[in-house]
Design a protein around this nucleic acid. Structure first.
Length: 505
RNA sequence: GCCCCCUUAGCUCAACUGGCAGAGCAUCUGACUCUUAAUCAGAGGGUUGGAGGUUCGAGUCCUCCAGGGGGCACCA
């Protein structure tokens, strides 16, 4: 093992660590544990800052350079993010998850041992302090430190103190550093937590209970996506990571859990993009005796309450633009939008087929509803700035959805689109077991099994045969909703640890 | 899986048409008891992502590889 002293006068990566290890040893020599321990009764920095009006400034007396102040005694803990030496004074800025505050450590004020410890402080170290909250001569709110508590040494060098991390690879691989050093990152993820909490609160307020379905599925149903496969050794069976929550929650409707939801991770073995991560968070909620109109009302309430929880108004920033979330959101039928954006009659399969060919989509051997759906995805979805509820889908591409009573070619389904993104998807749930069995056993022309939602699940059909109440069901892509509510243009800004290739050794 | 772009000090970035690899922050030494992107004086720090190639000479041009970003495909 190399001695730190050997590298003391070099400034490369190893030497930066060596300098910190030298200080770590000095801390140990002072009889202080550089890894700290329990530190009770400190106050979050934001709350400390709120006590600034308790500072009393006494009248200036003759011979004084500045007026005497008295302030509240406070105890804080946080990470050192800035440090400035001024002789036998050190100014330190610490940060906790509520804010930042300046500390003043003076040699005379803290005593010899604390001063020796203060000389061992580096950017990134975590410390606790006791002191008096006052203002410096320049007016900066500051804890005048009386006692110093060392809580944890950082032996790695932090990023540049103002620019922070900008390399997207480093930001994702070392999210812990991103949270500390990139402006707005910690706040964004705390905001995500508030959104999720708001959704759970709203659902609870509407009488929904949460449920935990299995994530290992023998049949990856409920959506059309390629699953991840895995293997259970003792049972000697291949299993899939779930691609949706749907089929188990509906079993719970059969079981009499009348309002049920799950908010959890699903996995899809597909491409990565600014709007896709292989694992992402989905909400699905099911309400017995409801329908898709019930779900529109619920969706609006969930979104509006989530926005309220983030402390924002109805107009949210989105890049250079704004999104107007004033409820009720626009509602347009699928066919209406289809014609509006393509100029093709929505009830004319031959014209749709010709149009699909014209824009380069394959049409031979493809079911008319599939062709229509592909044109819709290619030309309509991206153009939907929204928020807009797209209502009433072609039935053939909706195998889990109840058909309209007066028109079996149309399914009672809506999707909520905002900025071209599908944020929510909801049905009046199909509860006819015979029709369900038929729809799950038949692949549509032009779709492979991978591309299809039609994966036979005998037990699911058996559950329906026992009677599932008429119901409305809703799915919301939580990550995309969080993107929209935090003005984040890519999904990896709202997922703490997006999938990356392993780092090379 | 395909196409394009990026990769230089711990971090953030320079380096002309191929011609001595640089700066700021960080680090180290010294000064400073009211600083706040502290300041001042000095010092050190590089396998230019990796491996080959062209050239008198490569951070720069070429090939392959790796990682990341964007787009396409996939995502009914």
């Amino acid at each position: 093992m190399t001695k730190p002293e050997q590298d003391e006068h070099t400034g490369g990566g190893l030497a930066l660590e060596a300098a910190r290890r030298t200080k770590l040893h000095k801390i140990e020599e002072l009889g202080i544990d550089p890894w700290g321990g329990r530190f009770d009764n400190h106050t979050p920095i934001a709350q400390i800052r709120d006590r600034q009006d308790e500072i009393v400034v006494h009248p200036l007396r003759e011979g004084q350079r500045s007026p005497k102040q008295t302030g509240p005694k406070v105890r804080a803990a946080g990470r050192i993010v800035l440090q400035r030496g001024a002789g036998k004074l050190i100014f330190v800025d610490i940060r906790d998850w509520t804010g930042k505050i300046q500390l003043l450590i003076g040699k005379k004020q803290v005593g010899e041992k604390n001063w020796a410890l203060a000389e061992c402080l580096d950017l990134g170290d975590i410390i606790g302090v006791d002191g008096e909250l006052k203002r410096t001569q320049t007016g900066e709110l500051t804890i005048f430190v009386e006692d110093l508590h060392f809580l944890t040494k950082s032996i790695e060098t932090p990023p540049a103190k103002h620019k922070g991390l900008t390399d997207p690879e480093l930001r994702q691989r070392m999210r812990y550093l991103d949270l500390i050093h990139t402006d707005g990152v910690l706040e964004r993820f705390l905001r995500r937590a508030k959104i999720v909490q708001s959704i759970r609160d709203t659902l609870a307020g509407e009488g929904f209970v949460d449920a935990e379905g299995p994530t290992l599925h023998a049949i990856a149903g409920g959506a059309a996506a390629r699953p991840f496969t895995t293997h259970h050794n003792a049972l000697e069976i291949d299993l899939y990571l779930r691609i949706a929550l749907e089929l188990h929650l509906k079993r719970l409707l059969v079981g009499g859990i009348e309002r049920v939801y799950e908010l959890g991770r699903v996995y899809r073995n597909e491409g990565i993009s600014p709007r896709h991560n292989p694992e992402f968070t989905m909400l699905e909620a099911y309400q017995a005796y409801g329908d898709y109109e019930t779900m529109i009302t619920l969706t609006e309430k969930l979104v509006v309450e989530a926005i309220r929880a983030t402390g924002q108004g109805h107009l949210l920033p989105w890049g250079e633009r704004e999104i107007d979330f004033t409820a009720p959101f626009a509602r347009k039928t699928y066919d209406e939008l289809f014609t509006e954006h393509t100029g093709v009659a929505a009830d004319d399969p031959a014209a749709i087929r010709a149009h699909a060919e014209q824009i380069g989509l394959p049409t031979s051997g493809v079911h008319p509803d599939v062709a229509k759906s592909e044109v819709f995805e290619a030309q309509v979805e991206d153009a939907l700035a929204g928020p807009v509820f797209v209502i009433d889908y072609p039935a053939a591409v909706c195998p889990l959805t109840k058909r309209k009573a007066d028109n079996p070619a149309v399914a009672e389904r809506f999707e909520l689109f905002i900025e071209g993104m599908e944020v929510a998807n909801a049905y009046t749930e199909l509860n006819d077991p015979d029709l369900q069995e038929e729809l799950l056993s038949r692949q549509l022309d032009g779709l492979s099994e991978d591309e299809s939602m039609a994966k036979m699940d005998r037990d699911f059909v058996r559950a329906l045969r026992h009677g599932m109440p008429p119901a409305g069901g809703l799915g919301i892509g939580i990550d995309r909703l969080v993107m929209l509510l935090t003005n984040s243009q890519t999904i990896r800004e709202v997922i703490l640890f997006p999938l990356l290739r392993p780092e090379a050794e």
